Computed example of a mutant assay.
Amino acid sequence: MTHAIETRLTELGHTLPEAPAPAANYVPFVRCGDTLYVSGQISQRPDGLITGKLGESMSAEEGAEAAQYCALSLLAQAKAALGGDLSRLKRVVKLVGFVNSTPDFIDQPKVVNGASDLFGEVMGTAGAHARSAVSAASLPMGVAVEIEAIFEIE
């Protein structure tokens, strides 16, 4: 049976990807009691990485779309961590977003809103969260955005 989160994603025209494999020496998630920590997920579409630097080769709107893809990967990792059962996902506690941007780019919050908005649209009040949105001089493989998450789970 499809869970409400996946149903809502479909209604919004999104497809949940397979959980991406780690790109280095780390695990994609750690469960600790009723908390799930998901490692940073980089911006990637099904056809490849979303690369670029905000304030140079990308607009804030393009960055927000990249952040939305990070959120989809975060949900995919949560699904994998919960044995395929997203009904055990109670709420988003915190997001930390890293934006590959020029020194004078100041719209990191608008970029990370792409992920925050998706969680709100998909999970309602359970998608509301604490958050940081920071600039990075560069990110792995030249991606535009990387976001990590902390979830409350059952």
Rank of each mutant, 00 (worst) to 15 (best):
S57L: 01
A78D: 01
A78H: 01
L118S: 09
Q68C: 13
E56R: 11
R88K: 15
S59C: 04
L72S: 06
A81K: 05
V112T: 13
S73M: 07
G63F: 05
L74P: 06
A81M: 08
S116C: 08
F98I: 07
A66L: 08
F98C: 13
T102D: 10
V93R: 14
A66F: 04
A66I: 08
S59G: 01
L75G: 03
K79F: 01
S101Y: 12
L75D: 01
R91H: 08
F119W: 08
V96K: 12
A78I: 06
L86C: 08
A115T: 05
L89T: 02
L72Q: 00
A81F: 04
A115R: 04
D117M: 13
V99E: 07
G63W: 07
A78T: 02
K79I: 05
S116P: 00
G120T: 15
R88E: 04
L95I: 09
E61M: 09
K110Q: 15
S59F: 05
G114H: 07
S101L: 07
V112C: 12
G83A: 12
L74G: 02
G114I: 10
S101A: 15
P109Y: 07
C70G: 04
E61D: 10
Q77F: 00
S59H: 03
S59R: 01
A71E: 00
A76I: 08
A81T: 06
Q77I: 12
T102F: 09
G114E: 06
L75C: 07
A78M: 03
G120L: 14
A78P: 02
L89F: 08
R88V: 02
L95H: 05
M58P: 00
S87G: 11
S87R: 12
G63Y: 06
R88T: 00
P103G: 07
F105Y: 15
C70H: 02
V93N: 11
R91N: 11
F119C: 06
Y69C: 09
E61Y: 05
Q68G: 13
E65K: 13
A78Q: 02
V96H: 15
I106A: 15
S87P: 01
D117Q: 15
C70T: 11
L86D: 05
P103Q: 07
V111P: 09
Q108Y: 07
C70N: 12
D104A: 13
D104Y: 12
A76V: 08
A81L: 09
S57C: 03
A115P: 02
V92I: 14
K79V: 00
D107R: 15
V112G: 01
L86N: 05
N100S: 13
G97D: 06
S57A: 03
M58K: 13
A67H: 00
A81V: 09
F119N: 03
D117I: 14
N100A: 14
C70W: 07
A76W: 03
L118V: 10
G114Q: 08
E65Y: 11
Y69T: 06
K79M: 04
L89A: 03
A64V: 03
C70E: 02
V93Y: 13
R88G: 01
F98K: 14
L95F: 11
